[in-house]
Simulated assay, not measured.
Amino acid sequence: MSQTFNLKNEPVWLKESHKRRSSRSVQIGKQSIDQLIKKGDPITYTTIAELSKEIDPEGKGIHPNTIRTNEQLYEYYKQHSKTHKQKKNSKNNTFNGSLTNENIEFHKIKPNRNIDNTRRKYLKLSKEELVQRLILAEEYIAENNTKWVTSYFESFK
């Protein structure tokens, strides 16, 4: 036998408890956001939740999901967060970890590859990933130039 929840039978103490907890979350969340602004730290769900544990007299703090679900707190968060409005280049970003010479095989790049596909692939990468890839490519070129010059002069001996 299943029991259905009826809003008419909702206890009054439950509404009061919910209202009290909601206002506590708003108060602690706003204090956390204000302190992060003063410090100059980024305002993200995680940083707010971490700082709220320090601010909260009970030591509980608030959960990151509380920021999303509490309308007042979410509006306050959106007003002050710079990361809220940022858009990632792509949700299905192919980058997974740091780039090293081992996982980029420059020697396998073909000169007759499809440039449009390559361009699309690079547009999906973030600026940081592109810079890292460019640095690795320059290192690869410099190493191979050194090897080529060395072997060229050794061939005259």
Results as ranks from 00 to 15, higher is better:
55 I>Q: 08
49 A>N: 00
16 E>S: 14
28 I>T: 00
37 I>L: 15
10 E>H: 00
51 L>C: 03
31 Q>W: 14
48 I>H: 11
30 K>A: 10
46 T>Y: 10
21 R>D: 08
41 D>E: 15
45 Y>R: 02
26 V>I: 15
41 D>M: 06
55 I>K: 05
44 T>W: 00
43 I>S: 03
55 I>Y: 07
26 V>G: 10
40 G>H: 02
13 W>Q: 13
43 I>C: 09
55 I>A: 07
49 A>R: 01
16 E>Y: 12
38 K>C: 08
18 H>M: 10
33 I>R: 11
10 E>D: 00
20 R>S: 02
46 T>I: 00
23 S>R: 15
39 K>F: 09
27 Q>Y: 04
31 Q>M: 15
39 K>E: 05
24 R>G: 04
55 I>D: 08
55 I>T: 13
26 V>R: 10
56 D>F: 05
32 S>R: 03
32 S>I: 02
26 V>K: 10
32 S>H: 06
21 R>E: 07
56 D>H: 08
16 E>T: 12
41 D>C: 07
25 S>W: 02
41 D>S: 13
55 I>H: 06
32 S>W: 05
51 L>R: 11
10 E>V: 13
53 K>Y: 06
23 S>Y: 11
39 K>P: 02
12 V>N: 08
23 S>K: 14
27 Q>L: 03
38 K>N: 14
10 E>N: 00
27 Q>S: 12
54 E>M: 01
42 P>N: 08
40 G>N: 03
49 A>K: 00
47 T>M: 07
29 G>Q: 04
18 H>S: 01
55 I>R: 02
42 P>Y: 08
23 S>D: 15
47 T>G: 00
29 G>M: 05
28 I>R: 03
10 E>R: 01
35 Q>E: 15
26 V>A: 14
56 D>R: 00
13 W>K: 14
42 P>S: 07
35 Q>T: 13
23 S>C: 05
35 Q>N: 13
46 T>H: 12
14 L>C: 10
33 I>K: 11
44 T>Q: 02
37 I>V: 14
14 L>P: 06
43 I>G: 02
14 L>Y: 12
22 S>L: 09
36 L>A: 01
46 T>N: 08
50 E>L: 08
